Simulated assay, not measured.
Amino acid sequence: MNDLMRDAESLLGKSLSDGVDRRDFLKTALGTGFAAATLPVAAQNVIKTDTAGLTAGTITIQVNGQDVPVYRAQPEGKTNLPVILVISEIFGVHEHIADVARRFAKQGYLALAPDLFIRQGDPTKVASIADLQRDIISKTPDAQVFADLDAVVAWARANGGNGDKIAITGFCWGGRITWLYAAHNPAIKAGVAWYGRLKGDVNANFPRHPIDVAGTLKAPVLGLYGAKDTGIPLDTVAAMEAALALGPSKSQIVLYPNSGHAFHADYRPSYVEADARDGWRRALAWLMQHNVI
């Protein structure tokens, strides 16, 4: 199962437990566009981070003639800030991803969440899973993503960010990118990958996967995975751990036995509050341990 289908499947849990037909749920939630994916599970589960004390909003960075929107959140009036790149799921930079950026900003970071699908389209306006896979995800090459992130890093350095303290974190599709970009850019000092795919087919757009860079990865990456994630088999997690052990990065993987995919996504039925909170605590501690704060 690819990242796209896995994210869609994780939306099914609550609907099925409530007695709603699986096909009807998919038709309702996904058939009218992926904006439906951002609906909350329940109001009490959705974390809302305000902008008090922050400078927050969308900026634009030009990359090879393309304007790339980037959600930026940072402590107001501060400079020389540690930087964290926040990489979205397949659903793009919606409110949850912006909220995660604000959470990091409250911890003292310059947090930047770029729209990495801007050239291919808007995931929230795609009519179906098949269309999203065909028209956006499969046509967003890793090389393009890396170039955009390189430009975001350069902007951060020129706009109040500390170039010696740059980290990356991402969710699902963004979790895979976290591993790969940490290997791509030596400026990355640490990363936190949330349930990103580790293996997969290779082609011109996706020439490598995390398992392929594990042995040479230098930046330490913390991987946070759910043991019940049906889209990321445990044998691939074990293989990644074995490959990491042979390399110099001292990366680690934490496996949550009671969680499946997208357990951090508090706006979705997949959310597991205890593990999400533990993962967030571990993420902040990991970045502090590796001097990215």
Rank of each mutant, 00 (worst) to 15 (best):
L4R: 02
D7L: 05
A8D: 10
L11H: 11
L12Q: 11
G13Q: 11
K14H: 10
S15Q: 10
L16G: 04
L26Q: 15
L30Y: 00
G31V: 09
F34R: 10
F34D: 05
A36T: 13
A37G: 14
L39E: 13
P40E: 13
P40S: 11
N45Y: 14
D50P: 04
T51E: 14
T55P: 01
I61L: 13
N64V: 02
Q66S: 09
D67S: 15
V68G: 07
V70T: 08
A73H: 10
T79I: 14
P82M: 03
I84A: 11
I84Q: 09
F91C: 03
V93R: 09
H94E: 13
E95T: 09
I97P: 03
A98G: 10
V100H: 00
R102N: 06
R103S: 12
Y109D: 07
A113R: 08
F117E: 03
I118N: 01
D122C: 10
T124Y: 09
T124Q: 14
V126E: 12
Q133L: 09
D135F: 00
I136H: 00
D142L: 15
D142C: 07
V145D: 03
F146H: 12
A151G: 08
V153M: 12
V153C: 09
W155K: 03
A156S: 12
R157M: 13
N162R: 11
G163H: 04
I166Y: 08
A167I: 05
G170A: 04
G170M: 02
R176Q: 05
I177W: 09
A183T: 01
P186I: 12
G191I: 08
W194P: 12
Y195I: 04
L198D: 01
K199C: 05
G200S: 07
A204G: 05
F206Q: 09
I211E: 05
A214V: 01
Y225T: 04
A227D: 14
T230C: 06
G231W: 02
G231R: 03
A242V: 01
A245Q: 04
L246P: 03
S251Q: 07
Q252M: 12
Q252Y: 01
I253L: 15
V254N: 07
P257V: 09
F263V: 01
F263W: 10
A265G: 13
Y267T: 06
Y271Q: 05
D275P: 04
G279M: 04
A283C: 11
